[in-house]
Computed example of a mutant assay.
Amino acid sequence: MSNDQNAETSTAGAYITSGQEFTRDTNYITTRITRDGADGYPVEAGRYRLVAARACPWANRTIIVRRLLGLEDAISMGITGPTHDRRSWTFDLDPGGVDPVLGIERIQDAYFARFPDYPRGITVPAVVDVPTGQVVTNDYAQITLDFSTEWAQYHREGAPQLYPEPLRDEIDTVARRVFTEVNNGVYRCGFAGSQEAYEKAYDRLFTAMDWLEERLTGQRFLVGDTITEADVRLFTTLVRWDPVYHGHFKTNRQKLIEFPALWGYARDLFQTPGFGDTVDFDHIKRHYYVVHEDINPTQIVPAGPNLDNWLTPHHREQLGGRPFGDGTPPGPVREGERVDPAHTPLR
């Protein structure tokens, strides 16, 4: 994918500017971890730590891909709390509020270890070089692609092909529209600084949602007959739609449950190992409703919606397709990486 396709950031960089359209900060640390180590960081099992937040849709993608591919033994993972201040995400879920591997309280410490005067937003996901404690990259769109390609020697047996070469052009094309119009489109609505900007963003978003609804009416997955990178990228927005975006971001023409194909598709993925078992609805709601004080100054977190409907039959298997192709589903979630059972209908 080209650099403009990777133009994504975490929720930490989102604020309302009065009278203006929301514009996402698109500058990332583009250092890559590759087999040849061209950027100074070779693929090496046990050397790197993925720092992610279950609350963040962009970080959620990396958690899903790491699990689908079985990279748990090769790349360790640290999970931040669901909220943050303007400085950084913190490790408040860990004993003493310190990441047990990196020994830091805030992910900003890894950024400053490499760039003492780092001027941009401190975002997740980020991959950190454990020996030096320095951030390597926060360019998470590239992170997941590299998990699929550069880290192939460490994939589990039966790992799916999330970025198969014959479909890459189509995956890139679909993913580009999903990002610009949907992944970022909900933010364009939520952080619009004027009525005009909001209505323009709203129309763009639902034009794309209608396109996706039509596309997924006749096919089980976005590209081809298996799960690909494109599905991962769409899923993390859809799973946040009714709990957060519909109300908080005013994307309220329809709830997700009112899109027959998209709702079935989202449930199909949610009930697939590697997707729903990475989703923490409590973290999602607390993050958006507490952190975005300019949108929700009371910081009251809604009690709903009911989540049991995520486990209802979807019947998408009638469209054919094989979620993992010639591969197999991942095994049980690793001890220490499970979502709190109180935060998910997958108990």
Score class of each variant (00 low, 15 high):
E214K: 07
P131Y: 06
T180E: 14
T123W: 02
V174D: 04
E213A: 09
T207M: 04
D210P: 03
L162E: 15
V135R: 02
E157L: 14
S148V: 05
T144I: 15
D203R: 13
N183K: 00
A152P: 10
Q195C: 02
Y198E: 07
G121C: 00
G185C: 07
E157V: 15
Y140I: 00
F179S: 07
G133C: 11
S194G: 05
D129Q: 08
G133T: 14
T144L: 07
T173R: 10
A159D: 10
F147D: 09
A141H: 00
P160R: 05
R176N: 09
T180S: 07
G158I: 09
L145V: 15
E214W: 02
T173Q: 11
R156Q: 06
D210Q: 11
R176V: 05
E150R: 10
V174R: 09
T217S: 15
S194Y: 03
H155P: 15
W151A: 11
T180Y: 00
M209S: 03
Q195L: 05
W151L: 14
V136H: 05
E199H: 11
V182N: 00
L162D: 07
G158V: 14
A141N: 06
V130M: 13
F179Y: 09
R177T: 09
V130N: 13
K200C: 02
T207S: 13
A208R: 01
H155S: 10
T132A: 10
Q142I: 03
A192L: 01
V130I: 14
G190H: 01
D139N: 12
E165D: 14
N183I: 00
G218T: 15
D203L: 08
E181G: 00
V135N: 04
F206N: 06
Y202Q: 12
H155M: 14
I171G: 14
Y202N: 02
T207I: 01
Y202P: 02
E157W: 05
Y198N: 01
V174P: 01
W211S: 13
L216V: 08
H155K: 10
T180A: 12
Y140M: 07
E157P: 06
L205P: 07
R176H: 11
F179P: 00
E214F: 09
R176M: 03
G193W: 01
R168V: 06
D203T: 12
V182H: 01
S148P: 03
E181M: 00
D146V: 10
D172R: 11
N183T: 04
R215K: 14
R188Y: 03
Y163I: 05
Y154M: 11
M209V: 08
A201L: 02
R156N: 12
T173H: 10
R120L: 13
G133A: 08
